[in-house]
Design a protein around this nucleic acid. Structure first.
Lengths: 204, 204
DNA sequence: ACCTGAACACCGTTCAAGT
DNA sequence: ACCTGAACACCGTTCAAGT
């Protein structure tokens, strides 16, 4: 409701001296990725930006409003970015699925932020809601890929869910500083996921 | 290094008036499960316990020491509890695996705390280390079950990892307030996991 | 329109002093 | 051995006042 300053097409219409919401947002992203939500504090941000903390309250109602803005920003970018990229690789749903898994598990820019948000969601209701929406869209995309790859619709939902859970799990582990899952393990998951529906193979 | 008060077998040896570490720990657990690490604050805990915050510093060096004690407490209980319980159900590794998945995804006591710790690990190094240790032990257990169930050793490691990732993912989602994964989806995961190694079934 | 400065509340931490 | 009370620092929030 209070977003307006962000849509400056060129960002320096008037005087270059004063800050806008975008400047605070960027600083907040850095802080979030570095040390989680608790790291996003008004006073340190203010001194980083070279203003007093009182100035912050011109752009945002309070700290909660800043955090809200971070979530909005994330939702806008998180879903579309991945899906567009994956769709661009190939028409083959199997290739797309493989690309999705490999891409999302190997990016080294966003994961800190993605993670901070996920951890944040464990504590905060608003973050939780955003997460759920993004998760749902991503999982639906995986399900669509599986169905396009010939997996039975009935079993595709379960498998899409499992694949997405594993991705969430991977993000969680990597965020903890844990080792990344090997490509071999991901390939095994893809093999299982794209395979026939029951332990004993069905006839095509 | 500074744990001593906890091992009172009966917990009321001397005078009932003064608190011990255990009392602070319990209050801290409640706060942690309720609102995450940031919710574990000395002053509110003190008033909840009816003492001044100054008293806290008799039992713990500082807030960090309290958080440390929480992690120790968790590690001691988290691993053994689940494994013992699962081992008690059956000799059949397939039954054990199913029980492990169903049990760990349906407990309604610990998950808040488990979650708070996992979210905490995304930000804090010490929590991260504890998490990694516990994760490693649990995953090794899953791998052992798979191998006992006849899954090839080579592929068992990958599958154990994937299963455990899915469990972590489930915890993460539920902690965000997300819906629990259906039993059907878990059964599908078990089916894939215990199934033959390649898309085309091998002969028994 | 954007910022400063001073004020207040909350909480972590320290420490001398009490019992 | 365990706790109080007062003090200080840090940070969120408000607001009158500046430009």
């Amino acid at each position: 409701m209070t977003s307006r300053t962000q849509r400056n097409t060129k960002a320096k219409r008037e005087a270059p001296k004063s800050l806008d919401r975008a400047a605070w947002l960027m600083a907040a992203w850095r802080a979030l990725a570095r040390s989680g939500v608790e790291g996003v504090r008004v006073e340190p941000l203010a001194s980083e930006l070279g203003v007093t903390k009182g100035s912050f309250y011109w752009h945002f109602a309070d700290r909660a409003a800043l955090l809200d803005a971070l979530l909005e920003d994330w939702e806008r970018r998180a879903t579309a970015a991945v899906i567009d990229r994956v769709d661009a690789t190939s028409e083959d749903p199997r290739v797309r699925l493989r690309e999705l898994v490999h891409f999302t598990t190997s990016v080294s820019e966003a994961p800190d932020a993605e993670h901070a948000i996920r951890a944040w969601g464990a504590v905060d209701g608003a973050a939780r809601k955003k997460l759920d929406r993004v998760d749902a869209r991503r999982e639906a995309y995986v399900r669509a890929l599986l169905i396009a790859a010939g997996v039975d619709e009935g079993v595709a939902s379960f498998r899409a869910h499992v694949v997405y859970l594993a991705l969430i799990g991977e993000y969680a582990r990597v965020a903890h500083g844990g080792a990344r899952t090997s490509l071999d393990a991901w390939e095994e998951l893809l093999r299982m996921t794209l395979g026939p529906s029951s332990p004993r193979a069905s006839s095509a």
